[in-house]
């Protein structure tokens, strides 16, 4: 298979990463090299093999459903590029 520019543009949009038009073709070639490499897996017979869901046999622990932290908006917002009145500020989304 080989990736075309349109596919790269589509996945870049899905990933929310701006890729300039002139970078699409070189990016397609790079990604194609990696995809060709990983497609070796097609040689492995995996019929009836369960996909791994946990690397070590472990069961997730239950915990009490209670508030253990919070009420600290100032620290939560301390790294925000833009904040106001205890909220994160983003570009306008509703006209």
């Amino acid at each position: 298979m080989s990736l075309d520019k349109a596919t790269v543009a589509r996945i870049a949009r899905l990933a929310r990463i701006e890729v300039p038009e002139e970078a699409l073709a070189p990016m397609a070639r790079e990604l194609d090299t990696i995809l060709t490499f990983v497609e070796q897996l097609g040689q492995v017979n995996t019929d009836g093999v369960a996909p791994m869901t946990s690397v070590t046999p472990m069961r997730l622990r239950m915990r009490e459903d209670r508030v253990s932290d919070g009420g600290d908006a100032a620290r939560v917002l301390s790294n925000a590029p833009e904040a106001q009145d205890g909220f994160f500020v983003v570009p306008k989304v509703v006209e």
């Binding site: 990736l3 596919t7 790269v8 996945i11 870049a12 899905l14 990933a15 990463i17 990016m27 990604l31 990696i34 995809l35 990983v38 897996l41 097609g42 492995v44 995996t46 093999v49 369960a50 996909p51 791994m52 869901t53």
Partner: peptide, 24 residues
């Protein structure tokens, strides 16, 4: 971008599930 591609609709089984089977 590779990760987004292998998880995108239509490719998930061919790539991600296959890789997790190989992991087993």
């Amino acid at each position: 971008l590779i990760g987004t591609y292998v998880l995108s609709a239509g490719y998930y089984d061919a790539y991600y599930v296959k890789a997790q089977q190989v992991r087993t």
